[in-house]
């Protein structure tokens, strides 16, 4: 496999990563480097280990062997609070406690920056107000999160991740359960975080066409290993779709964005 070398320092890296749930190995001997300011989508068939990889990158899971490096330092040996100031993550279908308002949810993003005495500084207030405004959630700030629609709810969580003020942002299938227009809405928002705010973004996505359109770089996985890495044009080939997804498909240029677009023909085997 190829690792594209871009300008900019490596922010997050996996070295000989082996991830397992009890005895079952999900990811084995995986290497990955993510450079400053990149927007990467991890794609792959169900059960290929892409969410597991993202969890390990976000130190939610301890590797069986190998390590994850954040800015060159082993993430497992970095105090979790220090990590939380640099790396934010949005788990798959996160749960907000009943009755919690959007403003309170977003304010919680400031947790790593607060202490027992300093619970709500001017900084916190300004950052949260800005995060709400930037994600278009200011008008909904006093609404309970559980009363929002799926799309609004996801915006609220992204707003919280923004308020956390981290350079790196990991998102695990942020478009799950959303209709197409809200999927676009969420990915546009994440794209703006990358383009306008310079965030380094890693996102696990199911939809290959959306991944190709929004991410600069795709990482394709199969059976716990990387099978391809590069620009969407390099990765999304008919051969790769056959190898990794068992899918016979045509790849055409997306008439809107010019990125590769997958048109499935039939499932192989």
């Amino acid at each position: 496999m190829t690792i594209d070398i871009r300008s900019g320092p490596i922010r997050l890296a996996a070295e000989h990563l082996r991830l397992a749930y009890d005895e079952r190995v999900v990811v084995d001997d995986l290497d990955l480097e993510l450079t400053e300011g990149s927007f990467t989508a991890i794609v792959g068939p169900n059960g290929c280990g892409k969410s597991t990889l993202l969890r390990a990158l976000g130190r939610l899971m301890r590797p069986a062997s190998g390590q994850v490096l954040l800015d060159g330092r082993a993430i497992a040996r970095t105090p979790t609070r220090e990590v939380a100031k640099v790396l934010g993550l949005l788990p798959q279908s996160p749960i907000a406690p009943e009755g919690l308002t959007v403003a309170d949810l977003v304010a919680r993003g400031r947790h790593p920056h607060q202490s027992w005495l300093r619970q709500w500084s001017r900084d916190d207030e300004a950052v949260v107000a800005e995060a709400l405004a930037w994600t278009d959630m200011a008008d909904l700030a006093d609404r309970p999160v559980d009363a929002l629609s799926g799309g609004q709810r996801q915006r609220a969580w992204i707003s919280m991740a923004l308020a956390q003020g981290t350079d790196l942002l990991l998102l695990d299938e942020p478009t799950t359960y959303l209709d197409l227009s809200h999927q676009i809405d969420v990915l546009e928002l994440v794209g703006r975080l990358h383009a306008e705010r310079g965030r380094t973004v890693v996102v696990v996505l199911h939809d290959l066409n959306l991944a190709a359109r929004y991410a600069e770089r795709l990482v394709a996985m199969k059976d716990g290993a990387l099978v391809a890495s590069g620009t969407p044009d390099e990765v999304l080939t008919e051969q790769l779709l056959a190898d990794a997804f068992d899918l016979e498909a045509r790849v055409l240029p997306d008439p809107v964005a010019g990125t590769p677009m997958v048109v499935p023909v039939r499932r192989l085997r």
Binding site: R55, G58, R59, L60, T80, R81, E82, V83, A84, K85, G88, L89, L90, P91, P94, I95, R108, G109, H111, P112, Q164
Partner: peptide, 9 residues
């Protein structure tokens, strides 16, 4: 929940 709490340090 665990994941979000860990993510927030």
């Amino acid at each position: 929940g665990d994941d979000t709490a860990r993510g927030l340090g």
